[in-house]
Design a protein around this nucleic acid. Structure first.
Length: 883
RNA sequence: GGGCGAUUAGCUCAGUUGGUAGAGCGCUUGCCUUACAAGCAAGAUGUCAGCGGUUCGAGUCCGUUAUCGCCCACCA
């Protein structure tokens, strides 16, 4: 027997271990079945479960369980990302806390500390995912730094290197001074910040003329090696090739022409600092300007800067330069100006464009292919609008800077020969120069961008570059579920690498889930403290409640607003499902269910609930196939609560009391089957409570699990609109009678007599429902009228397609009743107006489809009939009052 | 500067071929009716952001404006 109260903690802690021990989530190659493969977006090894993970993983779990129930060989591969920067930063911080200077350690010592940290504290999030119910194949858990994946990374590097698509060179990169490493373009977050635009006067060497340059970065002027103007700018054309004397440093610098310059902005003259600006770098390359680096790796002014500024941090230097220029009379004006400042996505330090030697991957060819497969529809993005974003990025892609000046990561597999100077690229540790054979070689100290491992994830987890059986079977994967903020970092690059390494797309569908926000619409973040800890929420409400609530409230591809209290919805639903099952157990205690009932047979109640059930199966399946998870959740919620519990169960109560033993056995069998179907549909959303209840439903479920069962099969023949309409009318009679009782403040034991006038076909259904109708509406009896004329002292209730009158004699306040009837008539008249208007409109009658016009006519007729019924009641009442 | 999304009941959101607006929570009222008070029953609530257009008919399609949010971008 089920406990009186639904205890989510007991249930959830029981089932997950059972699932895991029975290897329900493990997948093996099986050529007789179609695979459905999902690779998890690997969370950072440093990560903790947050609401974003809850949403993302719940969606994946729903898809996996749904597909498994549909006969697919599902495989959800879990794992983690080594998260180069995040992890290294965290470990360094811990070391400093313990009084250890990370820089005092050798690379090997440092890496050992990181691995130790990973072993002791890393991967918490993977264990937390189990609490959520995630049906990952844990035997397949991978880590981007494990041996196999590292091998994949190096193999891919060598592949691209040999192809000539990887190169090393001195370019301006995004440099994080706090981390002292290069970053890719994507790792830079731009934000508009208040600053100033300073106008500096640069005097001409010859004569006493000058040019005025405007800059937002005065400190870089110490590294200026030229000033650029637009070649067609009439104001300055004659000065091109002339020299200026750079103030403070007193260096002669040329005036050059370049089309990058916008004559309309500022003064039309741009100071050029090739070593500290990407645009200036390009202009310098085109015009052979000199390069002068005036900052070091920490963004502190170096020996190339005038002595007075050396050792100053860049922001201090900015102030000092401005002050000096003002002192020298070269500062013309300072105006407020908004600038797009780039900040490191990890440290938030201002990113410095910095000239340094880095490794790059040529993206052009891979980008082209990756774009084509999406534009061709070979890969489908959901929602589709992301195609535009994807396309824009790929069409404007730049080479990917993949080297990082960190220790934690995959080392660049290139060795430099101390003798002949050649480079050797090798997947295995090189022992000698590939060109001259010298043993005097040294490996590049840099490691690769974290994404250089994650972009291989969909196939590296299956053993690539080995041609494994797993790879052949599971790749390409099926659906990728991820947040859109990594569409460039990750999604686009996986498409590129998949096509490049295997000549096949990595997945055929991508579903982008939104962001979880707080109720004010703010992104959840640690600093705001507006994010509930999912584990606390699971403790309090249960994983099922959390999952269901989040999914129910998250529209297709949109952001969602969440507060802990949102979980009331899911928790309430769990309780409802629980109690419905308790009802069944208690009411039919001792009854052995008869499973030999026929779907198409049975009374109106039976056929009605099956009709509604199959409509629901149809709807939910359709919604799930289209990633409309919230709609699917809402359909099952409404069916279970509003139809199954509120009506069907209420019908069942009197029915089973009247029935004989055989009848009860069939009733139980049928109702169990309906509940069983509901539990199957609910299972992907709420795996724990459904599993528990399913095992209580039938002893034969022992040793079997819901996720192994078939998804409910739709039988359209069971959807019967005639029955559904008849039932709606009966429901309207019941609700209408209750409403009358309520509006007169009459007690529940005040039983009315009902008069009905309706088509024989309708009366037949009502006859069949008679005991239920009398019981639920609180009627003493009803009389079927020969013609549509109610006895005196009645009030009409609105039921579509029939006339119904309640005998109120003895309870009646005539004046009040007349008022009520007038109000009702007024309301209906108001509803009739637009219908009449449309039908009078010739355009509507002529042009609208016949069925729409017919419906309008029928609706109007129905309303007219209702008014007639009410008017007649009104007359009768008036007579009664006068009598 | 370019692009995208959102705007529907007090709150969170449905509303997919255009046919005249719904749910949950909250609110009002009455009920501890032997599944469930985390419940049941009955009820109130909207110029579908504004303006214009297409159409017989627009929450739905087109244009435009506003507010909020996001993404991209070398105007120093």
């Amino acid at each position: 027997m089920l406990e009186k109260h639904y205890d989510h903690q007991a249930i959830e802690s029981r089932w997950y271990p059972a699932w895991e021990e029975n290897k329900l989530f493990s997948s093996k190659v099986d050529p007789t079945k179609k695979p459905f493969t999902v690779v998890i977006p690997p969370p950072n090894v440093t990560g903790m479960l947050h609401m974003g993970h809850v949403l993302n993983n719940t969606i994946q779990d729903i898809l996996i369980r749904y597909k498994k129930m549909n006969g697919f060989n599902t495989c959800w591969v879990p794992g983690m990302d080594h998260a180069g920067i995040a992890t290294q930063t965290m470990v360094e911080k811990n070391m400093r806390k313990q009084g250890i200077d990370p820089d005092s350690l050798t690379r090997e010592e440092f890496l050992e500390k990181v691995w130790n940290w990973k072993h002791d504290f890393g991967g918490l999030i993977i264990r937390q995912l189990r609490r959520l119910g995630s049906s990952c194949d844990w035997d397949r858990e991978r880590f981007t730094m494990d041996e196999g994946l590292s091998n994949a990374v190096l193999t891919m590097f060598k592949h691209l290197y040999d192809k000539g698509w990887i190169y090393r060179g001195k370019y301006i990169v995004n440099w994080c001074p706090a981390l002292q490493t290069a970053l890719s373009d994507d790792e830079v977050e731009r934000s508009e910040e208040d600053s100033s635009l300073w106008h500096f006067k640069y005097p001409l060497v010859e004569g006493d003329g000058h040019l005025v340059v405007a800059t937002t970065r005065p400190e870089t002027m110490l590294g200026d090696t030229g000033v650029a103007v637009h070649p067609d700018d009439e104001r300055y054309k004659h000065l091109i090739g002339k020299k200026l004397l750079l103030p403070i440093v007193n260096r002669e610098i040329p005036i050059i022409a370049h089309t990058h310059v916008d004559p309309a902005f500022g003064t039309g003259c741009v100071k050029v600092t090739p070593s500290h600006s990407k645009e200036d770098f390009e202009m310098a390359m085109d015009t052979n300007l000199e390069f002068l680096t005036v900052m070091d790796k920490r963004a502190i002014m170096n020996e190339n800067a005038p002595e007075a500024f050396r050792g100053m941090d860049r922001f201090k230097a900015r102030k000092a330069v401005v002050a000096k220029m003002e002192e020298l009379g070269f500062l013309l004006k300072t105006e407020p100006h908004k600038v797009a400042v780039g900040r490191c996505y990890r440290t938030k330090d201002v990113v410095e464009p910095y000239l340094s030697e880095q490794w790059f991957i040529k993206m052009e060819h891979m980008a082209k292919r990756a774009l084509d497969v999406v534009l061709d529809g070979k890969i489908k993005l959901h929602p589709e609008r992301w195609v535009n974003v994807y396309r824009h990025w790929l069409e404007n892609i730049r080479d990917w800077c993949i080297s990082r000046q960190l220790k934690w990561g995959h080392r660049i597999p290139v060795w430099y020969c101390g003798d002949c100077g050649a480079q050797t690229c090798s997947v295995e540790l090189a022992e000698a120069c590939g060109t001259c054979g010298s043993k005097n070689i040294e490996q590049d100290p840099d490691v690769m961008d974290t994404w250089a491992s994650s972009w291989l994830w969909p196939f590296s987890v299956f053993g690539w570059p080995e041609k494994s059986e797993d790879l052949a079977y599971y790749y390409p994967t099926s659906t990728l579920v991820t947040a859109a903020d990594i569409i460039f970092f990750w999604v686009a690059r996986m498409v590129m690498s998949g096509l490049e390494a295997l000549d096949e797309i990595p997945f055929d569908q991508v579903y982008f889930n939104g962001i979880v926000r707080d109720l004010q619409g703010r992104k959840m973040s640690k600093t705001l403290g507006n994010s509930p800890n999912p584990l606390d929420v699971i403790d309090k409400y249960g994983a099922d409640a959390l999952r269901f609530s989040v999914v129910y409230n998250t529209p297709y591809g949109e952001d969602t607003r969440f507060a802990e209290a949102s979980c009331d919805l899911g928790r309430g639903f769990c309780t409802k499902i629980w109690n419905a099952n308790r009802f069944l157990q208690m009411t039919f205690e001792g009854v052995t269910p008869d499973d030999n009932w026929r779907e198409a047979e049975g009374d109106i109640v039976a056929r009605w609930i099956l009709s509604r059930l199959h409509s629901t199966i149809d709807g939910i399946t359709e919604e799930l196939e289209n990633f409309r998870l919230a709609n699917a959740a809402s359909r099952i919620y409404n069916f279970f609560w509003s139809e199954l519990c509120d009506w069907y169960v209420e019908f069942l109560k009197p029915l089973q009391r009247e029935a004989d033993e055989a009848g009860r056995a069939v009733m139980l069998g049928r109702t169990q089957a309906v509940i069983d179907t509901c539990l199957r549909m609910l299972h992907p959303f709420m795996p724990f409570v459904t599993e528990e209840l399913w095992h209580h439903l039938d002893d034969r479920h022992e040793g079997r699990y819901l996720v192994q069962q078939d998804w409910p099969k739709l039988n359209r023949d069971l959807i019967d609109t005639e029955i559904e309409d008849a039932m709606s009318a009966i429901q309207a009679l019941i609700s209408g009678t209750r409403a009358v009782r309520k509006s007169y403040n009459l007690p529940n034991n005040a039983h009315f007599h009902l008069y009905l006038y309706a088509a024989p076909s309708q009366i037949r259904y009502i006859e069949e429902m008679k005991p239920i109708l009398l019981k639920l509406a609180g009627l003493e009896d009803y009389t079927v009228l020969e013609e549509n004329a109610a006895p005196q002292g009645c009030t009409a209730i609105n039921v579509k397609g029939m006339s119904a009158y309640l005998d109120l004699r003895g309870h009646l306040d005539i004046e009040a009743e007349l008022g009520k009837i007038d109000a009702k008539i007024a309301k209906i008249n108001k509803e009739m107006k637009p219908l009449e208007g449309r039908l009078k409109n010739k355009g509507f009658v002529d042009k609208a489809p016949a069925e729409v016009v017919d419906k309008a006519r029928a609706d109007l007729e129905e309303l007219k009939r209702q008014v007639d019924t009410l008017s007649q009641t009104r007359e009768d009442l008036q007579k009664l009052g006068q009598a």
